[in-house]
C-alpha cells in the first residue's frame, strides 16, 4: 500500500532523482518519527489547552475540589551564612521536606517574617516563616489529576511581566526544555508536511487550497485585525 507521501510520478533514475527520492524518504520518516516520539506530549498540551480554555467545564474542576492541610512547625532560623531570599527559602524548604518551584508573591517588609509559595504540578504550598518565633506555618493544597494536567500546560517558572520570578528548580528547567522540544517538533512536522505536499503533485492544488484557507483565517487574527480596525 502506498504511503501518504509516496511519489506517484515515475521519475528518471538519475542521480538527482535518487537524491530527491532519498530526501523524500528522510523527510517522511522525520515527519512520523517526530510525531510518534512527541505523541503523548502533544496530547497533553492539546487536551490541557482545551480544558484551560473552558474553565466552566465542571468535570475538570480542580481548585474547588482541592484537599487542604494546614500545619505549624518549629524551624531553625537560617544562619548568617544563608543570605538572600532564595537561599533562605531553600533552607526552609529543606527543613519542611518540600521541593518545587518558588513563587514570590509578596514584598518582604519585615526581615523576621518571610512569606512565599512553592508549586509543582498537583501541589501548592503556602509558607509563612517567622524567624523571631522560629515557627513556620504551612498550607498545603493538593489538586486532582485535572489540576496536574492544567498546571503542566503552564509550568514554566516565569511570568511575562514579573522579573522577580525566575526558574529555580531543575525539574522546571527540564520541563521547559521538553516544551521547547515539542514546539520545535511541531514546527518540523509542519515544514515536513509542506515538503511532502509539494512533492505529491496530484495533491498540490487542494493542499494549497487547504493551506491557503488556514493561512487566511490565522493571518486575520495575527495581523489582519490590527489592519482592519
Amino acid at each position: 500500500m502506498p504511503s501518504a507521501t509516496e511519489s506517484t510520478v515515475p521519475g528518471k533514475t538519475t542521480s538527482s532523482s535518487l537524491l530527491r527520492a532519498g530526501a523524500e524518504r528522510c523527510n517522511r520518516r522525520l515527519h512520523y518519527y517526530t510525531g510518534l516520539f512527541l505523541l503523548f506530549f502533544m496530547w497533553l498540551f492539546a487536551l490541557s489547552g482545551l480544558i484551560l480554555n473552558h474553565p466552566t467545564w465542571n468535570f475538570a474542576e480542580s481548585w474547588k475540589n482541592r484537599r487542604e492541610v494546614d500545619e505549624e512547625r518549629e524551624m531553625a532560623a537560617p544562619g548568617p551564612g544563608v543570605k538572600g531570599d532564595l537561599a533562605q527559602a531553600r533552607e526552609i524548604m529543606r527543613q519542611l521536606g518540600i521541593t518545587g518551584e518558588i513563587l514570590w508573591t509578596t514584598t518582604r517588609a519585615n526581615p523576621d517574617l518571610f512569606e512565599f509559595q512553592v508549586r509543582r504540578p498537583g501541589h501548592f504550598y503556602f509558607i509563612k516563616a517567622d524567624f523571631a518565633r522560629k515557627r513556620v506555618t504551612l498550607r498545603k493544597d493538593d489538586v486532582n489529576l485535572w489540576g496536574v494536567i492544567k498546571v503542566l500546560h503552564t509550568f514554566d517558572g516565569v511570568q511575562m511581566d514579573d522579573d522577580r520570578n525566575t526558574r529555580d528548580w531543575g525539574l522546571t528547567s527540564l520541563w521547559v526544555f521538553s516544551m521547547d522540544v515539542v514546539a520545535v517538533g511541531l514546527i518540523v512536522m509542519v515544514l515536513s508536511s509542506l515538503y511532502m505536499t509539494y512533492e505529491r503533485r496530484p495533491k498540490r492544488l487542494w493542499g494549497s487550497f487547504a493551506l491557503g484557507l488556514g493561512l487566511l483565517c490565522c493571518g486575520l487574527f495575527c495581523a489582519g485585525l490590527r489592519w482592519i480596525f
Binding site: 516565569v158 521547559v176 514546527i187 509542506l194 511532502m196 493551506l211 490565522c218
Partner: peptide, 23 residues
C-alpha cells in the same frame, strides 16, 4: 493531509509563541 495543512498555521502560532512565553 488536508486538515493538517489547514491547521498548520494555527499549530505554528501555538508552537512559536511557546518560546516567547517560556523564555
Amino acid at each position: 493531509l488536508y486538515l493538517g495543512l489547514f491547521i498548520s498555521p494555527f499549530v505554528l502560532v501555538f508552537a512559536v509563541s511557546v518560546f516567547f512565553m517560556a523564555h
